[in-house]
Design a protein around this nucleic acid. Structure first.
Lengths: 213, 213
DNA sequence: ACCTGAACACCGTTCAAGT
DNA sequence: ACCTGAACACCGTTCAAGT
């Protein structure tokens, strides 16, 4: 009855239903109507379960077909990765991000990104730097999505006005100046902004290297 | 005797000495020779303690003086942020990163980055996007530094050779191709690569906007 | 082969009682 | 004002005993 895949799915269900904080061997076992100690017949320990969850979440990623245009492909891969990571409860993403990237599941997007970069003429060592910068940006973006409440919206001028004045008093004049924009946070828009910048930079760099050769 | 700053410092000491996993109200109290429940006279709960730790770690950041050159200033601020975040045990950084960015301590680097961008002619809304992209990259980079073992080095060709063959067999031909570069990870180098790309992109974008105006 | 009872060394937190 | 004893509802994990 009990099996590794069943346990992993139950763990994801716990996170989806009650948040990442509620995840424990005991809560997973409770959901399965089983004693927590029984899980040890199928998983090594809690750490291994967390690895398996991260693996399972990432394995839902659908790698988009390459179009041959580097910018298009990089953006499509980044979106696919983000969609997979966010496909469960928002908090599940922190679990994926806090596992070391050597998990097998990470290799699929890695392969796709490297393929896109190298098809566009990137040399191996440079491609590795580029993919690492991209992954760092994606990780940081998802971490923010997970830990930020929906938005920071406080558009009520009755609140915003005094707050800006307080910021200016603290010497944070520039923060005060942009406060209206800081109070709005559209995760997807920020994601696209950053990925677009990186993709543009990669395209430009490769074109420049090609022109020199 | 007991006080909030003393408790926060003891908590950081616990992390430095025994890692983030060993941090608990009880371990902090033990280090202070006090009962864990006594801490509640000075902190609200564990969450508040974690916030205070993040605040304290980030407050060590020394904001560099502005030079007026956007690229130079952005890179200097990023390095200062990284240095502060890594000034304790590597694992302490995950604590800082997992707290929402609305903490007061985040405002110092935010102000400096916005000032650099706007001095270079950035409009408020665009400056906010730029600073968010930069912070996402920095967060992702630090998260990798915290969760990755020192390096992934496995340069022994007797190990590397078969591993690359195995990767190629899985259809991961590009991963196999770059495996020698993936096995080496210099955190600072990767950090500089990414920050450099972002800074270059911002400088170029602002120059372009200025030329159009 | 798989499950569980007893047991251990942990957690965060409340509240009433002590100084 | 600050500290603690008693108490509660949790954790992960081992190991011997059961089916």
């Amino acid at each position: 009855m009990l099996s590794r895949p069943v346990i992993v799915q139950a763990a994801i269900d716990v996170i989806d239903a009650q948040g990442a904080a509620a995840l424990s061997l005991r809560s997973v076992a409770r959901r399965l109507g089983v004693d927590a100690k029984s899980l040890y017949n199928h998983i090594e320990n809690k750490e291994a379960l967390l690895d398996a969850i991260a693996q399972q979440v990432l394995s839902r990623m659908v790698v988009p077909a390459a179009t041959g245009d580097l910018r298009t492909d990089l953006i499509a891969i980044a979106h696919a990765f983000r969609a997979a990571a966010l496909s469960s409860h928002r908090e599940a993403v922190t679990l994926v991000l806090s596992r070391p990237a050597e998990l097998l599941a990470h290799l699929t997007p890695l392969e796709a990104t490297l393929a896109a970069l190298m098809a566009a003429g990137a040399k191996p060592d440079w491609a590795v730097h580029a993919v690492r910068a991209t992954l760092a940006f994606i990780s940081g973006s998802l971490l923010r999505e997970a830990s930020t409440g929906l938005t920071l919206g406080a558009d009520d001028p009755a609140i915003a006005g005094p707050r800006e004045a307080a910021l200016a008093d603290l010497g944070l004049t520039h923060v005060a100046l942009v406060a209206p924009y800081l109070s709005r946070l559209d995760h997807l828009r920020e994601f696209d902004f950053g990925i677009g910048i990186l993709a543009d930079a990669f395209v430009r760099e490769l074109a420049q290297a090609a022109a020199k050769a």
